[in-house]
Amino acid sequence: MAYTLCFLLFMIGLYCAVVKKNMVKIVLGIMIMEYAVNLFLIMLGYFHDGVAPIIDRSEFDAQTQTVTAQFLNSSVDPLPQALVLTSIVISLGSLALLISICIRTYEKYGTFDITEIRRLRG
């Protein structure tokens, strides 16, 4: 159910990127797809009634340098979280690049409509 709704969000973004004529709409579709993928990866690591992957003082045994078995069995997966953190920051960079291309094209052609941007101009 949750995975399906997330995939539906992805498909809405894909529809927007494939069908729309407006350049900014295409960028928005790509952004929606990014949200859906990030959300899906975090969902894969979620554990029912789990705790955030932050170790409390009471959950760490300083003598043996190990965490308690209770934390080991209730923590959500920290690995997808760390990788999605990278992905979110990179998506900001790619958004800036895409939008600057859109602004530049608008300055050259005076429109965002990709069907009217046909000829290459220097």
Binding site: L39, M43, A52, Q81
Partner: peptide, 11 residues
């Protein structure tokens, strides 16, 4: 908000 529900405060 969803990330908070999914126990991912950093994200």
């Amino acid at each position: 908000l969803m990330f908070l529900f999914l126990r991912a405060p950093d994200i």
